[in-house]
Design a protein around this nucleic acid. Structure first.
Length: 744
RNA sequence: GGACUCAUAGCUCAGUUGGUUAGAGCGCUUCGUUUACAUCGAAGAGGUCAGAGGUUCGAGUCCUCUUGAGUCCACCA
């Protein structure tokens, strides 16, 4: 043996050994579970699918390590153990990255019909699809790669669309025009969860508005105003309530009705609010309450961020530009009373690209969540799911109790296209399609030759880029076309709609009995940052689909921060590339550094000092082995043997209990301390003095190798192989450490 | 405005149903290289466990309040 443990010389070889022996597959004959067939319990973890084409960051290394520890532990315990891996198509993320590439070539997604674009992204993802997987292997992930799943696999897509149909049958799907959080840059709407609120300073404009002065941050939306509102009890404005007032605008005079609504805060500004139902969530709700009195949404901003024809002289202008021009023109006309430049408020921004979110009216599919959240809350109350992670169980409950209906429509191509069909009998369907590199837009009435237009349905369908059907139109849900003269919805499902179904889609499409064998899964391990996006929705969807929870335990790990406890970010330049650290210190050292003293739900900071320390630990283990192999064999009982064996047993029980309780960080720390400071510092020294016999000492080494294997699999397996060659391992443990039996 | 979490050594953090003398890594001081390991060993300095009160035979751990830090959610045009 070398004087030092050289991880580069072992890791690849050891991983190959595991893979060749088929040790990750629960159906393999070498599994400890096969030896105790009768009382073997299933243990299953589904890997949170990383984006197929994303290189791993430190957070992936964290989840891979934690899950691998649990999986290796349970495999050794003799449980029927499956860790099922997969990757996600990551709809918006991936399309966003791909569009950036297009932009470099001077192209945009609007240059392609949706099928062409889809195929291009598909090819791009395929090119990079093994990036994540290869990196997970470098970390030592013992996942069953033969069961690997991709979110857009045909069989998975089939179940996802079936679920949509089932939800519709349950009357939990509806289509409605609501204001959606729309990113004009990404070109799609989002759910409430995908919006970041940022505080910023923006001018508050006090403008003349008929007989009133009112304060607004968005003067440009005045073309979309359909009413003026005051508080019902506001004495200043009683005489106006219910009246129509004449307002002088930039576009001449117009009339608006004054309504009274509790929503108006008399203390703010002048206590008068202009109501713009098409571009403000609150105003939209006000309109809903006063539908009989005032007109509805009047859209003055389009889906690409331009002013619409409704904005008169400003039509076609970009929003920001329009605001500047309008403010200027109002000042010239003397309509601007004053501008408060110091006003702070928070605005929604796109979590993807940071663009300011525009609330825009759009027909979208929604899922009514109440019946789903109720089931989830009940399961939590009954203790069918246990959440491990500092207070996040309470946060989950809070989410479930306050969730709004889920907007699942996304106006992007990369994803699962909604199995929704509209009859072309409705000539008001608005379509955009590409023919001979030309972008043609209009209603079917204008375009389709059925209605004296000049294009065939076939041409439109083939080149289809986007379709917008009127809100009240009939639709048919079907995986395939319900007949001639139907066009399929161009929207795709929210990525999270398919990932919410990961627990059953993966198992139902796996080996014949995987679902009955492994569902509900035992642990869902992921970062707390996607608790509402993913964990909550898996719980809701899983319960609704299968009448059972998708997982019994949720283990939430914290964020990895840098050595100073700061959040990692590319802009700060303090990110850690896990592959670099594997090169430098070895996968075992990286794994150990990430988990040692980590605690569920709490952030963890790591730096080079930690990697060095854990790298040294792997070396310590290596050298302790060298010492034992070099020391003289002796069978004479030592005076300290009994006490030593007792302590060894205590440690084993302690680690076992800690792992059962998901105290993974603590187990790692305990092992580190007991091995280094007890086994090495005390026991090896005692053995030198003859107080502990060599044959007894080696029992301890073997126990430690097993206990440590889930945490640092490469070095332990490597040592194991050497010990075996030297004949130090019992026959019942012949073979690989990964499939050896957990000590007790 | 609502909620959650955290506060322990110079720094980053553990502390497992309340139980001897509160631990680790890094850093610091002194010493050590006769063969497991210098990616090492030995010895040591360093803590009023944020503050106050309470429960208890016993509190870093449980309860209440205060202070400070962070995170999430909501949000007034």
């Amino acid at each position: 043996m070398d004087k030092r443990y050289q991880h580069q010389d072992h890791e690849q070889e050891i991983y190959d050994l595991w893979e060749k022996s088929n040790s990750f597959n629960p159906d393999s004959d070498n599994q400890p579970a096969k030896q105790n067939k009768n009382d073997s319990k299933p243990f299953c973890i589904l890997m949170p699918p990383p984006n197929a084409n994303d290189p791993l960051h430190i957070g992936h290394a964290m989840f891979a390590t934690l899950e691998d520890i649990l999986v290796r532990y349970h495999r050794m315990l003799g449980d029927d153990t499956l860790w099922l891996p997969g990757t996600d198509h990551a709809g918006i993320e991936t399309q966003f990255v791909f569009e950036k590439k297009l932009k470099k070539k001077g192209q945009s997604r609007f240059d392609f019909d949706r099928e062409t674009l889809y195929q291009m992204i598909w090819d791009y993802v395929q090119e990079n699809s093994d990036v994540a997987v290869n990196q997970l292997k470098k970390l030592g992930a013992s996942a069953d790669w033969s069961r690997f799943k991709f979110m857009l696999d045909k069989d998975i897509v089939k179940i996802v669309t079936q679920t949509f149909q089932e939800l519709a049958d349950q009357k939990l799907v509806y289509r409605d025009v609501k204001l959606v959080n729309y990113c004009t840059h990404c070109g799609t709407g989002f759910s409430e969860l995908e919006i970041n609120h940022k505080e910023q300073k923006s001018p508050l404009y006090y403008m003349k508005y008929g007989p009133f002065t009112l304060a607004t941050t968005r003067p440009e939306t005045k073309f979309g105003d359909t009413a003026i509102a005051v508080h019902p009890d506001d004495k200043r404005y009683q005489e106006y309530i219910g009246q129509e007032v004449e307002v002088e605008g930039l576009n001449g005079l117009f009339k608006l009705k004054v309504i009274a609504d509790e929503y108006v805060d008399p203390e703010f500004g002048t206590g008068v609010v202009k109501i713009t139902p098409a571009h403000d969530f609150n105003d939209f709700e006000v309109w809903q309450r006063h539908q009989d009195e005032i007109p509805g949404p009047k859209q003055i901003i389009d889906y690409r961020g331009h002013m619409t024809a409704e904005a008169g002289p400003y039509a076609g202008m970009y929003l920001k530009k329009a605001r500047q021009e309008i403010v200027k023109d109002m000042q010239e006309k003397g309509l601007m009373v004053k501008i408060d430049e110091d006003y702070k408020h928070s605005i929604g921004t796109c979590y993807r690209c940071g663009t300011v979110i525009e609330p825009l009216p759009l027909p979208q599919f929604f899922i009514e969540v109440k019946p789903l959240t109720e089931k989830a809350l009940q399961a939590l109350d009954e203790g069918k799911v246990k959440v491990h992670g500092a207070g996040h169980d309470k946060i989950l409950k809070h989410w479930l109790e306050n969730l709004h209906d889920w907007n699942i429509s996304r106006q992007i191509v990369w994803g699962i296209r909604m199995p929704v069909w509209y009859s072309t009998d409705n000539s008001n369907i608005h379509v955009v399609f590409i023919k001979n590199n030309e972008r043609i837009e209009g209603t079917l009435k204008e375009l389709l030759n059925l209605y004296e237009g000049k294009y065939s349905l076939d041409e439109i369908e083939k080149g289809l880029q986007e379709l917008r059907a009127p809100v009240n139109i009939k639709y048919i849900i079907s995986p395939t076309s319900p007949g001639e003269n139907y066009l399929q919805e161009t929207d795709t499902f929210d990525t999270w709609f398919s990932s919410a179904q990961w627990p059953y889609t993966t198992l139902q499409t796996g080996q014949l009995n995987d679902f009955s064998r492994f569902y509900p899964t035992n642990v869902m391990e992921t970062g707390y940052d996607i608790l509402p996006f993913w964990v909550m929705r898996m719980l809701m969807m899983g319960l609704n689909k299968t009448n059972d929870v998708p997982f019994k335990n949720v283990y939430l790990h914290g964020l990895i921060r840098d050595a100073k406890g700061q959040k990692m970010s590319k802009s700060k330049g303090n990110t850690i590339n896990p592959l670099e650290k594997i090169e430098q210190y070895g996968a075992d050292a990286l794994r150990m550094a990430l988990v040692i003293r980590s605690s569920a739900g709490l952030d963890k900071s790591v730096g080079d000092g930690d990697f060095k320390a854990t790298r040294n630990f792997t070396n310590k283990l290596w050298n302790a082995t060298r010492f034992i192999l070099m020391s003289e064999k002796s069978e004479t009982k030592g005076t300290g043997d009994t006490e030593y064996l007792e302590k060894l047993s205590t440690i084993t029980q302690e680690i076992t209990r800690q792992l059962n309780d998901f105290k993974i960080g603590l187990a790692a720390e305990t092992l580190y301390n007991e091995f280094w400071h007890w086994f090495c510092d005390e026991c090896i020294e005692k053995s030198k003095a003859g107080e502990i016999s060599q044959s007894t000492l080696i029992k301890g080494l073997i126990t430690f190798l097993k206990l440590l294997h889930p945490f640092i699999p490469f070095v332990t397996e490597s040592i194991w192989q050497t010990l075996q060659k030297e004949g130090f391992v019992d026959k019942k443990d012949s073979g690989l450490l990964i499939v050896s039996n957990w000590p007790h």
